[in-house]
Design a protein around this nucleic acid. Structure first.
Lengths: 147, 147
DNA sequence: CTAGGTGCAAAAGGTTTGCGGTTAA
DNA sequence: TTAACCGCAAACCTTTTGCACCTAG
């Protein structure tokens, strides 16, 4: 089985597990996110998808992205009130954001740091998730890890 | 000099320092934020302002809020793509957000935690600011500190 | 076959803008 | 006096929705 077929099967399973169907639009959009992990917006994804598929509607892009999020394949990234960005990296990570260039890079923080945050919470607080956004200027960010 | 007058002077200075004028709309909106530190949206601020002032326009609320942000008197708080919220707490703090109730509470994190994050950054990265959003359920959040 | 998905266009929701009248300094 | 500000309505931009047609299972 080729790697592409494997990915396809993995996707298929993720969808059917939630009672949802496998469609080529969903597959393509997921592939777009995996192929270039640059946290694109829905519009950027729409443009890339149209290049690959010839034609797709904006609403479908949003629908597919919602589905991917719901199936735990992709996460949304929110920075201020800018357009929502999408990220296929499911591991715990923070985001480095350079307002000048608009670039976003993933950065893995040590687990004890998250543990440290957890300790600060009130007793009656059940932790859901933690989002860490680090703003700053990257002077030569070429070698950052965009996992 | 009364406390109100002192606040007024402080505001006046903050505005003129940036070449901006002191207006009653700006003052009222700032007071609304100080009086109830519950991270209101522009719409909530608009409603409270109308109660106090009789009449004010939505655009003015946005304009005034922008001014207050620019004069470093107030900060924006972004949660997902929900309406922007406003916060007069300028000290370093994280936000606890309960998606069920919509409540937001400020929580002060130990300085060494922020130091710890700083250490994780790439060499070529000049830190701007850090935003930490902690999502979860507060089962009886009455006694949380909303500083 | 049919529930679920796609595509289109129209609507919604939050925020911004242009501009004539108003006001702080 | 006059540059800055307010208020209104209209525009803007991202995202969502309704509905007819299509398609995976």
């Amino acid at each position: 089985m080729t790697q592409t077929e494997q990915r396809k099967n993995r996707l298929h399973e993720a969808f059917t597990r939630k009672g949802m169907r496998y469609t080529k639009q969903r597959e393509q959009i997921y592939n777009i996110l995996l192929d270039k992990r640059d946290h694109p917006t829905a519009e950027e994804i729409f443009l890339r998808a149209r290049e690959r598929m010839g034609s797709i509607s904006f609403a479908t892009v949003y629908n597919c992205l919602d589905t991917l999020v719901e199936c735990d394949l992709v996460r949304q990234v929110h920075i201020d009130r800018e357009s929502t960005r999408y990220c296929p990296n499911l591991s715990d990570h923070a985001h480095l954001h350079c307002p000048q260039t608009g670039e976003i890079h993933d950065i893995t923080l040590p687990t004890d740091l998250l543990e440290n945050i957890r300790e600060q919470l009130p007793e009656d607080f059940t932790l859901g998730s933690v989002e860490i956004l680090i703003r700053g200027t990257s002077h030569k960010a070429q070698n950052s890890k965009a996992s």
